[in-house]
């Protein structure tokens, strides 16, 4: 019964990503959208938070939001899959529920 967790805040200004990661279960997916995509950058001060998930959850970042912010070519954390809006829809429809960490 996996959950899609959506995070739309930068982890540098808000604890939504941190709180989300404190409540994910094995098999869940975490999707970073809007300012949430800043959390996908490799080598940042918060990179360790997502890195600790060790494959227990699937990590995604919304490509159009990365591109809008000039991050398309920046290295992302290992294990982060970049998806488009169609991929976003697929996650919502295939997982059992979605939870927005606003």
């Amino acid at each position: 019964m996996p959950t899609l967790h959506m995070v739309n805040k930068s982890p540098f200004e808000d604890n939504a990503l941190q709180s989300c990661l404190g409540h994910v279960l094995k098999g869940d997916a975490v999707l970073l959208i809007e300012d949430g995509v800043y959390g996908a950058l490799a080598g940042s001060a918060v990179a360790g938070m997502l890195g600790q998930q060790n494959g227990a959850v699937s990590l995604y970042a919304l490509g159009p939001d990365l591109a809008a912010r000039g991050l398309s070519e920046k290295p992302l954390l290992g294990g982060v899959d970049v998806i488009d809006y169609g991929g976003f829809v697929d996650l919502v429809t295939t997982l059992d529920r979605s939870q927005s960490w606003l």
Partner: peptide, 11 residues
């Protein structure tokens, strides 16, 4: 954008 993509996929 999400709703447009969902409609395109036939949802």
């Amino acid at each position: 954008q999400f709703v447009k993509a969902a409609l395109e996929k036939g949802h």
